[in-house]
Design a protein around this nucleic acid. Structure first.
Length: 437
RNA sequence: GGUCCCAUCGUCUAGUGGCCCAGGACACAGCCCUUUCAAGGCUGCGACACGGGUUCGAAUCCCGUUGGGACCGCCA
């Protein structure tokens, strides 16, 4: 019937967009884009008590942030709407009544219940898990319409996937056990059964289902921790799938090109922050300096700094000095605070580790340094090495005090690069604050 | 309890009977580089859950055991 690929992501708006949901949405999106098909977004809001419009909105925003765009959905017109289950009640009722009149379902109270046929073997071939079968005798009758007039999940999903002409049902492995029930419903309704592809679950470090106990579970938390959406996308794609070669860092477009449902793995995967950090660092290294700066701005602001008083080019240059240091935008902001202001340096460092004897040596070195004719990193380094040789001092004995005075930290990029970028006047001013010049 | 699914380094995985006394990546350790920390380069540590089969040959196929997980709601 449907020759084109149509997949869907069907979240229920009872919470933020969680990692598991984002992972499922991602694989659906990948499959749709890979095949030039459609990605449909459907809101499963039949749980009156827990569903809210706010959650629906955050889920949509979360998907957008991740770069997962949909072709049809509650906010995008299509030929298969409406896209909220709460707006499709007449459709569910209509088909349920057909089952009642054909004797395959019965009423009990206000509800409509499907009688599961006895002695049947229900089987399907899952793209990921292979052949699965289950005896219908192990199933209880299935509630179709609840007493409140709303459909149940297992019923609504069948009606929707059929009427929306979904070709591939791609969802979490926790739905494998529901699949035979749904197939029975497809058959009773006389509908063609779609192709199923179940995805492995994502677990926490302790191999238990991911929950709040494992820390951040909503995609927004990752955004706020300083992860790039492309990196999260890349990392999610690697959970339960791999391209077949040894590439691990790739763009959205590259993933679309390489993706194949047939290569999805079956084992539940543990969400590993260390690997995510590595992937994020790799993406930060790949994006342009300007984009890096734009992503870091909110984090500078968060620590009370004022990046708006600088040009984007200047900010990008600052970040460039980091040369790979930092795994998140939050760290990038942290590691460069001293470029934007001397205040954080003063808070971190007081110079009370320097005794008088040491201070005299340093003053001598810094005055030579500040009077250098050329203010370039290489020149500063050559001068410093020469000076140290002559005085019988180790380079680190002058480089570290300089680092402390300029950055307030024991680690930083090459300190002569920092000094040059800060400028001779600013360096003199910071050194003089500590009485070192 | 019933049904279903899963099982390769700590983690993500490659592997579909011989190319595997198992390859890559993260993490970890060491070395190189070096003014610190990163980055980068090199090296190392480290796994086929167990027991039976089938086969000339098994991580790969079959059976069982053990261990995980999911579902069994008028939740989704």
């Amino acid at each position: 019937m449907t020759s084109t690929t149509r997949v869907r992501f069907a979240p229920s708006p009872t919470g933020a967009l969680h990692i598991g949901g984002a992972h499922t949405a991602l694989f659906n999106w990948l499959w749709a884009r890979r095949n030039g098909g459609s990605f449909v977004l459907r809101i499963e809001d039949t749980d009156l008590v827990r569903s809210t419009a706010e959650f629906e909105m955050t889920i949509l925003q979360g998907l957008r942030w991740l770069g997962l765009d949909w072709d049809e959905g509650p906010d995008v017109d299509g030929d298969h709407g409406p896209y909220r289950q709460s707006e499709r009640r007449d459709i569910y009722l209509e088909h349920a009544m057909k089952l009642v009149s054909s004797g395959q379902a019965y009423r009990e109270g206000e509800a409509v219940i499907f009688s599961v046929p006895r002695g049947k073997m229900v089987a399907f071939d899952d793209v990921v898990y292979g052949h699965i079968e289950m005896a219908s005798d192990t199933l209880k009758d299935i509630v179709l319409i609840k007493s409140d007039g709303f459909p149940t999940y297992n019923y609504a999903v069948v009606v929707d996937d059929h009427t929306m002409e979904i070709s591939h049902v791609v969802r979490g492995e926790d739905h494998i056990s529901n699949t035979p029930k749904q197939i029975l419903l497809y058959e009773a309704l006389g509908w063609e059964v779609p192709t199923f592809a179940h995805l492995p679950m994502i677990l926490g470090k302790d191999k238990k289902k991911l929950s709040k106990r494992h820390g951040a579970t909503s995609v927004y938390e990752y955004r706020d921790m300083g992860y790039h959406p492309d990196a999260l996308f890349n990392y999610f794609a690697l959970l339960g799938w791999n391209p077949g070669d040894e590439r691990e860092i790739f763009t959205r477009e590259e993933a679309v090109e390489m993706f194949d449902l047939a290569r999805v793995t079956r084992k539940a995967a543990v969400f590993d922050m260390d690997k995510l950090n590595f992937v994020n660092q790799a993406h930060i290294a790949r994006i342009s300096p300007l984009e890096r700066a734009r992503h870091t701005v909110p984090f500078w602001k968060e620590t009370g700094l004022d990046p708006d008083s600088r040009t984007e080019e200047w900010l990008a240059e600052v970040l460039d000095l980091l040369e790979g240091r930092g795994q998140t935008f939050r760290e990038l902001a942290e590691y460069t605070d001293y470029f934007l202001s001397f205040e954080p340096v003063k808070k971190r460092y007081t110079a009370d580790d320097i005794d008088e004897e040491r201070r005299e040596i340093l003053k001598s070195f810094f005055s030579t340094m500040l009077s250098l004719s050329s203010w370039k990193p290489e020149e500063l380094e050559v001068m410093a090495k020469g000076w140290c040789d002559e005085k019988g001092v180790r380079l680190k004995d002058v480089a570290m005090p300089l680092r402390w005075a300029l950055t307030g930290r024991k680690v930083s990029p090459g300190i002569f690069h920092v000094a040059v970028f800060l400028g001779r006047d600013e360096v003199r001013s910071r050194l003089s604050h500590y009485g070192l010049v």
